[in-house]
Protein backbone atom coordinates (compact mmCIF):
# COMPACT_ATOMS: atom_id res chain seq x y z
CA UNK A 1 0.00 0.00 0.00
CA UNK A 2 0.94 3.66 -0.32
CA UNK A 3 0.70 6.29 2.38
CA UNK A 4 1.21 10.01 2.66
CA UNK A 5 3.00 11.13 5.77
CA UNK A 6 3.09 14.61 7.27
CA UNK A 7 6.05 14.53 9.60
CA UNK A 8 7.37 17.16 12.00
CA UNK A 9 10.94 18.00 11.05
CA UNK A 10 13.12 20.01 13.39
CA UNK A 11 16.90 20.07 13.15
CA UNK A 12 17.60 20.61 16.84
CA UNK A 13 16.19 22.12 20.01
CA UNK A 14 16.97 25.69 19.03
CA UNK A 15 15.80 25.78 15.43
CA UNK A 16 12.17 26.07 14.43
CA UNK A 17 10.43 23.05 12.96
CA UNK A 18 7.68 22.42 10.45
CA UNK A 19 5.55 19.67 8.97
CA UNK A 20 6.84 18.06 5.78
CA UNK A 21 5.15 15.65 3.40
CA UNK A 22 6.57 12.30 2.39
CA UNK A 23 5.31 9.38 0.36
CA UNK A 24 5.71 5.89 1.78
CA UNK A 25 5.54 3.39 -1.06
CA UNK A 26 5.52 -0.43 -0.98
CA UNK A 27 4.28 -0.62 2.56
CA UNK A 28 3.48 -4.20 3.54
CA UNK A 29 0.70 -4.85 6.02
CA UNK A 30 3.04 -7.09 8.04
CA UNK A 31 5.45 -4.25 8.73
CA UNK A 32 5.49 -2.50 12.03
CA UNK A 33 5.04 1.25 11.96
CA UNK A 34 8.71 1.77 12.74
CA UNK A 35 9.76 -0.64 10.00
CA UNK A 36 7.67 1.47 7.62
CA UNK A 37 9.65 4.52 8.77
CA UNK A 38 12.92 2.55 8.38
CA UNK A 39 12.06 2.05 4.73
CA UNK A 40 11.18 5.72 4.28
CA UNK A 41 14.51 6.61 5.89
CA UNK A 42 16.53 4.29 3.68
CA UNK A 43 14.97 6.06 0.70
CA UNK A 44 15.74 9.47 2.18
CA UNK A 45 19.38 8.54 2.73
CA UNK A 46 19.65 7.24 -0.82
CA UNK A 47 18.24 10.54 -2.03
CA UNK A 48 20.85 12.44 -0.01
CA UNK A 49 18.36 13.76 2.52
CA UNK A 50 18.41 13.66 6.29
CA UNK A 51 16.45 10.66 7.60
CA UNK A 52 13.66 11.19 10.13
CA UNK A 53 15.00 10.85 13.66
CA UNK A 54 12.78 8.85 16.00
CA UNK A 55 13.59 7.05 19.19
CA UNK A 56 13.37 3.27 19.49
CA UNK A 57 15.27 0.39 21.01
CA UNK A 58 13.50 -2.80 22.08
CA UNK A 59 10.82 -2.65 19.39
CA UNK A 60 8.61 -4.83 21.49
CA UNK A 61 6.80 -2.34 23.67
CA UNK A 62 8.78 -2.59 26.87
CA UNK A 63 11.67 -0.10 26.89
CA UNK A 64 9.52 3.00 26.46
CA UNK A 65 11.89 4.60 23.95
CA UNK A 66 9.48 4.97 21.09
CA UNK A 67 6.47 7.21 20.92
CA UNK A 68 5.00 10.00 18.88
CA UNK A 69 1.59 11.21 17.85
CA UNK A 70 -0.08 9.51 14.92
CA UNK A 71 -3.07 11.44 13.64
CA UNK A 72 -3.42 13.32 16.88
CA UNK A 73 -3.33 10.29 19.18
CA UNK A 74 -0.34 9.17 21.22
CA UNK A 75 1.12 5.86 19.95
CA UNK A 76 -1.64 5.80 17.36
CA UNK A 77 -4.41 4.98 19.80
CA UNK A 78 -4.65 1.20 19.70
CA UNK A 79 -5.34 -0.34 23.07
CA UNK A 80 -2.23 -1.23 25.05
CA UNK A 81 0.02 -0.68 22.03
CA UNK A 82 3.21 1.32 21.62
CA UNK A 83 4.22 2.70 18.22
CA UNK A 84 6.79 -0.05 17.80
CA UNK A 85 4.08 -2.68 18.31
CA UNK A 86 1.69 -1.08 15.88
CA UNK A 87 1.41 -2.96 12.61
CA UNK A 88 0.53 -1.53 9.25
CA UNK A 89 -2.42 -3.85 8.78
CA UNK A 90 -4.42 -1.26 10.74
CA UNK A 91 -3.95 1.29 7.94
CA UNK A 92 -5.30 1.48 4.42
CA UNK A 93 -3.90 2.29 1.03
CA UNK A 94 -3.98 6.02 0.41
CA UNK A 95 -4.21 7.05 4.07
CA UNK A 96 -2.72 10.39 4.98
CA UNK A 97 -1.11 10.44 8.42
CA UNK A 98 0.09 13.21 10.73
CA UNK A 99 3.16 12.39 12.77
CA UNK A 100 4.28 14.75 15.51
CA UNK A 101 6.53 14.57 18.55
CA UNK A 102 5.21 14.68 22.13
CA UNK A 103 4.51 18.30 22.92
CA UNK A 104 5.19 19.63 26.40
CA UNK A 105 7.58 22.25 27.65
CA UNK A 106 8.95 19.65 30.06
CA UNK A 107 9.75 17.49 27.01
CA UNK A 108 11.72 19.79 24.70
CA UNK A 109 12.23 18.51 21.16
CA UNK A 110 15.77 17.23 20.56
CA UNK A 111 15.34 16.50 16.87
CA UNK A 112 12.37 15.64 14.65
CA UNK A 113 10.32 13.16 16.68
CA UNK A 114 12.86 12.77 19.49
CA UNK A 115 12.12 14.60 22.74
CA UNK A 116 14.01 14.93 26.00
CA UNK A 117 12.18 13.03 28.72
CA UNK A 118 14.83 13.34 31.42
CA UNK A 119 12.25 15.15 33.57
CA UNK A 120 10.80 11.70 34.27
CA UNK A 121 14.15 10.50 35.60
CA UNK A 122 14.33 13.48 37.92
CA UNK A 123 10.83 12.77 39.22
CA UNK A 124 11.96 9.23 40.08
CA UNK A 125 15.20 10.54 41.59
CA UNK A 126 13.13 12.79 43.86
CA UNK A 127 11.57 9.84 45.62
CA UNK A 128 10.47 7.05 43.30
CA UNK A 129 12.33 4.34 45.18
CA UNK A 130 12.53 2.43 48.42
CA UNK A 131 15.61 3.43 50.41
CA UNK A 132 17.31 0.12 50.93
CA UNK A 133 21.01 -0.16 50.35
CA UNK A 134 22.49 -3.34 48.93
CA UNK A 135 22.99 -5.98 51.54
CA UNK A 136 20.55 -4.73 54.13
CA UNK A 137 17.51 -6.72 53.01
CA UNK A 138 15.68 -9.31 55.12
CA UNK A 139 14.64 -12.67 53.63
CA UNK A 140 12.33 -12.33 50.66
CA UNK A 141 9.54 -14.16 52.47
CA UNK A 142 9.98 -12.31 55.78
CA UNK A 143 7.15 -9.92 55.00
CA UNK A 144 4.13 -11.55 53.36
CA UNK A 145 2.49 -9.45 50.69
CA UNK A 146 -1.19 -9.88 49.99
CA UNK A 147 -1.51 -11.35 46.50
CA UNK A 148 -3.98 -8.67 45.51
CA UNK A 149 -1.58 -5.94 46.56
CA UNK A 150 1.30 -7.57 44.71
CA UNK A 151 -0.88 -7.76 41.60
CA UNK A 152 -2.05 -4.16 41.88
CA UNK A 153 1.51 -3.01 42.46
CA UNK A 154 2.57 -4.93 39.37
CA UNK A 155 -0.19 -3.34 37.29
CA UNK A 156 1.12 0.11 38.15
CA UNK A 157 4.78 -0.89 37.94
CA UNK A 158 4.21 -1.84 34.30
CA UNK A 159 4.64 1.82 33.31
CA UNK A 160 7.40 2.10 30.70
CA UNK A 161 8.01 5.83 31.11
CA UNK A 162 7.16 6.55 27.50
CA UNK A 163 5.54 9.92 28.11
CA UNK A 164 2.35 9.27 26.15
CA UNK A 165 0.29 10.29 29.17
CA UNK A 166 1.87 13.75 29.16
CA UNK A 167 1.53 13.99 25.41
CA UNK A 168 -2.17 13.16 25.39
CA UNK A 169 -3.12 15.22 28.39
CA UNK A 170 -4.68 18.54 27.42
CA UNK A 171 -2.89 19.98 30.44
CA UNK A 172 0.46 18.27 29.69
CA UNK A 173 0.34 16.83 33.20
CA UNK A 174 2.61 14.01 34.37
CA UNK A 175 0.07 12.77 36.89
CA UNK A 176 -0.34 9.28 35.48
CA UNK A 177 3.39 8.59 35.31
CA UNK A 178 3.99 9.96 38.80
CA UNK A 179 0.88 8.28 40.18
CA UNK A 180 1.92 4.93 38.73
CA UNK A 181 5.17 4.90 40.70
CA UNK A 182 3.52 6.16 43.89
CA UNK A 183 0.82 3.53 43.54
CA UNK A 184 3.31 0.73 42.82
CA UNK A 185 5.56 1.40 45.78
CA UNK A 186 2.72 2.40 48.08
CA UNK A 187 0.92 -0.90 47.58
CA UNK A 188 3.79 -2.97 48.92
CA UNK A 189 4.50 -3.13 52.64
CA UNK A 190 8.16 -2.41 51.87
CA UNK A 191 7.21 0.91 50.32
CA UNK A 192 4.74 2.14 52.89
CA UNK A 193 7.14 3.76 55.39
CA UNK A 194 8.25 6.29 52.78
CA UNK A 195 4.97 6.78 50.99
CA UNK A 196 4.16 10.26 52.33
CA UNK A 197 7.56 11.84 51.77
CA UNK A 198 7.65 10.12 48.41
CA UNK A 199 4.43 11.79 47.30
CA UNK A 200 5.54 15.20 48.51
CA UNK A 201 8.91 15.03 46.85
CA UNK A 202 7.78 13.56 43.56
CA UNK A 203 4.88 15.97 43.17
CA UNK A 204 7.07 18.96 43.93
CA UNK A 205 9.61 17.78 41.40
CA UNK A 206 6.93 17.30 38.73
CA UNK A 207 5.89 20.90 39.35
CA UNK A 208 9.45 22.15 39.04
CA UNK A 209 9.81 20.37 35.72
CA UNK A 210 6.99 22.46 34.27
CA UNK A 211 4.31 19.82 33.77
CA UNK A 212 0.74 21.05 33.85
CA UNK A 213 -1.88 20.16 36.41
CA UNK A 214 -4.21 17.22 36.14
CA UNK A 215 -7.91 18.06 35.87
CA UNK A 216 -8.95 14.42 35.70
CA UNK A 217 -9.69 14.41 31.99
CA UNK A 218 -8.56 10.85 31.47
CA UNK A 219 -6.96 11.01 28.02
CA UNK A 220 -3.79 9.68 29.62
CA UNK A 221 -5.46 6.48 30.77
CA UNK A 222 -7.01 5.98 27.36
CA UNK A 223 -3.70 6.19 25.48
CA UNK A 224 -1.33 4.65 28.02
CA UNK A 225 0.18 1.61 26.30
CA UNK A 226 0.43 -0.21 29.62
CA UNK A 227 -3.12 0.34 30.82
CA UNK A 228 -2.14 2.38 33.88
CA UNK A 229 -5.37 3.41 35.58
CA UNK A 230 -6.64 6.78 36.83
CA UNK A 231 -6.90 5.18 40.24
CA UNK A 232 -3.15 5.73 40.52
CA UNK A 233 -3.67 9.49 40.27
CA UNK A 234 -6.19 9.36 43.10
CA UNK A 235 -3.60 7.51 45.19
CA UNK A 236 -1.06 10.22 44.37
CA UNK A 237 -3.55 12.87 45.48
CA UNK A 238 -4.40 10.94 48.62
CA UNK A 239 -0.79 10.44 49.66
CA UNK A 240 0.06 14.03 48.80
CA UNK A 241 -2.82 15.36 50.90
CA UNK A 242 -2.07 13.15 53.87
CA UNK A 243 1.58 14.11 53.67
CA UNK A 244 0.83 17.80 53.39
CA UNK A 245 -1.45 17.79 56.39
CA UNK A 246 0.91 15.81 58.54
CA UNK A 247 4.24 17.25 57.43
CA UNK A 248 6.24 18.63 60.33
CA UNK A 249 8.49 21.68 60.20
CA UNK A 250 12.14 20.68 59.71
CA UNK A 251 13.22 21.63 63.27
CA UNK A 252 10.71 19.25 64.81
CA UNK A 253 11.69 16.31 62.62
CA UNK A 254 15.33 16.88 63.46
CA UNK A 255 14.69 16.67 67.21
CA UNK A 256 12.53 13.60 66.76
CA UNK A 257 15.31 11.90 64.85
Amino acid sequence: MKLTLNVWRQKNASSPGRMERYEARNVSEHMSFLEMLDVVNEDLIAAGQDPIAFEHDCREGICGSCGFMIDGVAHGGFKNTTVCQLHMRHFHDGDELWIEPWRASAFPVVKDLVVDRSAFDRIIAAGGYISVSTGSAPDGNAIPVRKLDADLAMDAAACIGCGACVASCPNAAAALFTGAKIFHLGHLPQGVPESRERALRMVRQANLEGFGNCTNIGECEATCPKGIRLETIAKLNRDFLMASWTERPPAETASAA
Binding site: M69, V73, A104, S105, S168, P170, N171, A172, A173, A222
Partner: peptide, 19 residues
Amino acid sequence: ALKRKARPVPYAKKVATTS
Protein backbone atom coordinates in the same frame (compact mmCIF):
# COMPACT_ATOMS: atom_id res chain seq x y z
CA ALA B 1 -1.60 29.82 33.25
CA LEU B 2 0.37 26.68 34.17
CA LYS B 3 -1.43 24.67 31.53
CA ARG B 4 -0.61 27.29 28.90
CA LYS B 5 3.03 27.26 29.89
CA ALA B 6 3.16 23.47 29.96
CA ARG B 7 2.36 23.17 26.26
CA PRO B 8 3.60 26.24 24.43
CA VAL B 9 3.58 24.62 20.96
CA PRO B 10 0.17 23.19 20.09
CA TYR B 11 -0.37 20.04 18.07
CA ALA B 12 -1.09 20.39 14.38
CA LYS B 13 -3.59 17.62 14.89
CA LYS B 14 -4.97 16.39 18.18
CA VAL B 15 -7.86 14.03 18.65
CA ALA B 16 -9.58 13.29 21.92
CA THR B 17 -10.26 9.62 22.51
CA THR B 18 -12.42 8.69 25.46
CA SER B 19 -12.58 11.86 27.52
